[in-house]
């Protein structure tokens, strides 16, 4: 049941100086399906791999619009993410009302971090079990941030979270230096290629992946299904798919 006697409560340190519950919460992020984010000088995008709870159900949405200039991709507990999403939508709306201007992305992200931190220190609370990739555009440029249940947040050129994020990260680390000057189309191409790295055997389709876009003069939007399909054809050439399908057939011969 318990890994150690120090993990039944968020506020108690282990003798090694660690807070186990917080580490478990960060583990929940790693269990979620992959979400990646990357940016150029003019655009930031998030790409996610969607899961469905059964063959009969729809895919669980992982990208959400916060405001005209901000969007998020999530990995971890969707229910917790919805709480944070509602909070972010509220804050940006309030900022618009008070200042008549869109909210700065970092300001919003730091508020999320502060909110998460409270849940790591107060008795009777548990940390959020969700990590966010926040993309946005404001007067200081285009941004990509990651938030985590520990209350930390980081600024990135490109980042991947969720299960098998390491494969996508390896791809991004190899390529991020070229991202700066890329067009939106090329950025999406790299995004989908990176997510393919972490999708292992699964074939990407217009239904099981999703792309969110925001940029200078581009309010947050989702990449349309038909356009996504065209990109996927480039990312996974038909020949490769045929090979993969064969493999799949071998595995599926059970009926």
């Amino acid at each position: 049941m318990f890994r150690t006697q120090y993990d039944s409560d968020v506020t108690t340190f282990s003798p090694q100086g660690r807070l186990h519950q917080i580490e478990y919460a960060m583990e929940a992020v790693k269990q979620g399906s992959t979400a990646i984010g990357l940016k150029s000088e003019t655009h930031a995008i998030v790409v996610t791999l969607l899961r469905s709870s059964s063959d009969l159900s729809s895919y669980q949405q992982k990208i959400f619009k916060v405001d005209e200039n901000i969007g998020i991709a999530i990995a971890g507990l969707t229910a917790d993410a919805r709480v944070l999403l509602k909070y972010m939508q509220n804050e940006t709306l309030n900022h618009k009302y008070v200042f008549e201007s869109p909210m700065s992305v970092e300001k919003l992200v730091s508020q999320i971090a502060d909110k998460s931190q409270i849940h790591t220190q107060r008795y009777g609370k548990r940390p959020y079990g969700v990590g966010l990739l926040v993309i946005g555009h404001d007067k200081s440029g285009v941004h990509l941030f990651e938030t985590s249940p520990s209350g930390n947040y980081f600024n990135y050129y490109a980042q991947a979270i969720g299960s098998r994020a390491q494969s996508a990260k390896t791809y991004l680390e190899k390529n991020f230096e070229n991202f700066k000057k890329l067009s939106l189309d090329d950025l999406i191409f790299h995004g989908l290629t990176a997510i393919k790295e972490s999708s292992s055997k699964e074939v990407l389709t217009k239904d099981n992946c999703s792309v969110g876009i925001v940029g200078v003069d581009t309010p947050f939007k989702f990449l349309e299904k038909d356009k996504l399909e065209k990109f996927l054809e480039r990312v996974q050439p038909q020949d490769d798919l045929d090979d993969m399908d064969l493999n799949n057939d071998n595995q599926m011969n059970i009926d």
């Binding site: 200042f99 008549e100 201007s101 700065s104 970092e106 404001d138 007067k139 200081s140």
Partner: peptide, 10 residues
């Protein structure tokens, strides 16, 4: 760091 200050309009 490198945060934009509030504008006169804001």
């Amino acid at each position: 760091k490198d945060e934009e200050p509030l504008t006169p309009k804001e």
